[in-house]
Nucleic acid binder design. Structure first.
Lengths: 194, 194
DNA sequence: ACGCTGATGGCAGTAACTGTCAACGCCGGA
DNA sequence: TCCGGCGTTGACAGTTACTGCCATCAGCGT
């Protein structure tokens, strides 16, 4: 993190990291498979946390509800207290495409793991993957807003708002058994379909 | 594609590709920034197509409706006729993490571009990014089902089904002004919240 | 004292990518 | 027809991420 912050990610050489850390280049690669992987050391812990949270969600809760609750729990226990660290880290990641790629695949694996948990809870297949992807999308957007935001709204709150926005945005054409007319959910952004 | 299919992606060297293509390693890197980029040659065209389709969507259509229509148009005009090619390509990509990373960042950039178009159509900011991410999620799931499926259902049809599934899965807790009780939408996978 | 084991260092090697310069073909103008 | 740009390619050297292999060393139980 120090070196990546000083010289940027690309200009930082593994030899430099190893020297600063007091070990050899060879041993660096024994701990991290990649030069990028250093910044994603905690990803497996986060995945484990979320998987457990969804597994232990009340059995009758909606897939999305279980996911959002898990994300909020993670937000409270691991993210909220490390906001400035998250900001510096995210600045590095979004400044470098390779790091962005790595972040995306971490989130994709996370989504896959969560989808698997949902299937274990009896959610059928198109819906399981879809809910997991939607949950991760909510997290991505909420996290971005939390990191770039200046006020001190809680990440957990932003997640809740974002999830509500998603349910409004994703609302399909009114099903046949639904009431007619519009239902302007607060915070919703519709462009008015008659 | 030939060499990647024969030896796999990792075992294929750029020198080998250059030799097979009848040019130098140096010139290869003048056309493709990356060894991986070869498999994503058409990504910019797809993005352009989708951006245009969303821009020219009827002005009163819902963000999600515009996105889904654009995706269906792309499905009909570029994907449907290249199913076996898409299958081979996807087999390569999902067999290799680096290629998977590259695919994910292409989709992420696509989502960002679509979100920008939505903002240009007057969609407010949390909703624009969220709709774009949700649309891409629908495409990812639908595409996966289309590629791995054995029957010859149209990708466009699968996209429509998947979008409907999403609106069912993402449906939030019943808003105060909504009817009480459950509404088991067909195809929906709820686990029954009382 | 001795052997085992896990972590580390040292070293050589491969291959992806980059910068730089020379050569070549093409094309419009004198 | 000759010439002078100009864009494309080749050739070559150099850096760096990453890997395989073996030697070394510290701890640790017997």
């Amino acid at each position: 993190m120090e070196l990546y912050g000083e010289r940027g990610f690309e200009q930082t050489t593994v030899a430099g990291i190893a020297e600063r850390a007091g070990l050899t280049e060879r041993t660096f690669f024994r701990y991290f498979t990649d030069k990028r992987e250093v910044l994603f050391w905690g990803a497996s812990l986060l995945q484990e946390l979320l998987v457990n949270a969804v597994e232990e969600a009340p059995p009758h809760s909606t897939p999305m509800a279980a996911l959002i609750a898990a994300l909020q729990q993670a937000a409270d226990t691991v993210f909220e207290q490390r906001r400035t660290y998250a900001q510096r880290r995210q600045a590095l990641i979004s400044a470098n495409p390779e790091l962005h790629e790595r972040e995306l695949i971490k989130l994709a694996r996370l989504a896959a793991a969560l989808a698997q948990v949902l299937r274990g809870r009896g959610v059928e297949d198109p819906a399981a993957g879809l809910a997991a992807e939607a949950g991760i999308a909510v997290f991505k957007i909420a996290f971005e807003r939390w990191v770039t935001g200046s006020d001190d709204t809680t990440l957990s709150q932003i997640i809740a708002q974002t999830a509500a926005e998603l349910s409004a945005v994703a609302a399909g054409p009114s099903p046949p058994n639904a009431r007619s007319g519009q239902r302007p959910t607060p915070g919703q952004t519709r462009q008015g379909r008659p």
